[in-house]
């Protein structure tokens, strides 16, 4: 029998070195990792990074998309032209308004609908599917359909307004109403997305907090703002990034409904401007410059948002 002892006082024997992991094994793992990652990297390089760099290069040229030989290096001229043209700034402003209203609108309405439908109602699943459906319909189809809704001559809205004796706004000729129409249509389409994500988040809410709030005699509005909404914060962050990036790039609805007009550019956003300059006005270099500016803007916004989220946690 050994003498009693406590840790630290025993006659310890020198520790043996742990066996080294064989280098061969780690090489094998590296090889496996490479096989799994490489296809994706190739796709990214070919279809994302290469065009991105090409686009930046192109923004320093004057080119009419015909022969590559016609391209002429002009330095920052495209950027200078963009910055000094009042139309570009009007378009930036329209993009900001459109994006902000689209993000806020679809998130607030999506959350509202999710709250409304997060309970046991008859036909609940049918209603949920109906709300989600617009999101999977193509934007072009929605654009066409909503032309019938907004048409001041025979559209649905004009008919409804007419019944209460109000004359329909000129959605296609008034610049402000045109932008409103585009935004409303986009919010309607995007609602399904924010709704579904919020609904999932609501179903994952902690039930005990709800009960604690009930026992604490919390009024409804206060419960929503102090107990429910804070729990949805990660979802709200996620949605604000994804919806913002999506609405920044909206194209199909504008193209089908207004073609960027009225008055040439009243509903033109930056993405649509890129398309117009490149493929309609045949000014690929200028279009590329606008695209690069957009890219930088999105980059900054995303970095700021992610930073904010990290800080939160």
């Amino acid at each position: 029998m050994t003498a009693p002892t406590i840790p630290g006082l025993e006659n310890s024997q020198p520790l043996r070195e742990p066996p080294q992991r064989k280098a061969k094994k780690s090489l094998k793992r590296l090889f496996l990792a490479a096989i799994l990652v490489i296809p994706n990297i190739i796709l990214l390089i070919v279809f994302t990074y290469r065009p991105l760099i090409d686009n930046i290069r192109l923004s320093f040229y004057n080119w009419n998309i015909s022969s590559t030989r016609a391209a002429k290096f002009i330095g920052f001229d495209n950027y200078i032209e963009w910055a000094t043209d009042p139309t570009s700034w009007a378009i930036v402003w329209q993009t900001i308004i459109f994006t902000f209203v689209a993000v806020a609108g679809s998130m607030v309405l999506g959350l509202g609908l999710a709250l409304l439908l997060d309970r046991n109602l008859k036909g609940r699943n049918l209603v949920r599917s109906l709300v989600f459906a617009p999101y999977v319909i193509s934007g072009a189809a929605i654009g066409v359909a909503f032309q019938f809704v907004f048409d001041p001559g025979y559209g649905l809205i004009q008919d409804l307004l007419g019944r209460i004796g109000i004359e329909s706004p000129q959605f296609y000729t008034d610049p402000h109403w045109a932008l409103f129409m585009i935004t409303a249509t986009y919010v309607w389409k995007n609602l399904g997305y924010t709704f579904v994500i919020y609904l999932a988040a609501l179903q994952g809410l902690r039930k005990d907090l709800d009960e604690a709030a009930e026992i604490d005699r919390t009024p409804r509005a206060r419960k929503f703002f102090r107990v429910t909404l804070p729990q949805l914060r990660p979802t709200t962050f996620f949605l604000s990034i994804t919806v913002l990036l999506n609405s920044f790039q909206v194209f199909d609805i504008i193209n089908v409904m207004t073609g960027g007009g009225p008055l040439e550019t009243s509903t033109t956003t930056m993405v649509y401007q890129v398309y117009q300059e490149t493929f309609v006005n045949s000014r690929a270099g200028y279009g590329a410059a606008v695209a690069t500016i957009m890219f930088l803007a999105v980059l900054v916004i995303t970095v700021v948002q992610v930073r904010m989220q990290d800080k939160e946690q």
């Binding site: 902690r206 005990d208 009960e211 604690a212 009930e214 026992i215 102090r226 107990v227 804070p230 729990q231």
Partner: peptide, 21 residues
């Protein structure tokens, strides 16, 4: 009566503290 009308206080197994406060 609803819980809010009973004037009872409860300590939950999960504590149910509001995480944002």
């Amino acid at each position: 009566l609803r819980p809010s009308q009973r004037d009872v206080a409860m300590v939950f197994q999960s504590y149910a503290l509001y995480p944002n406060m």
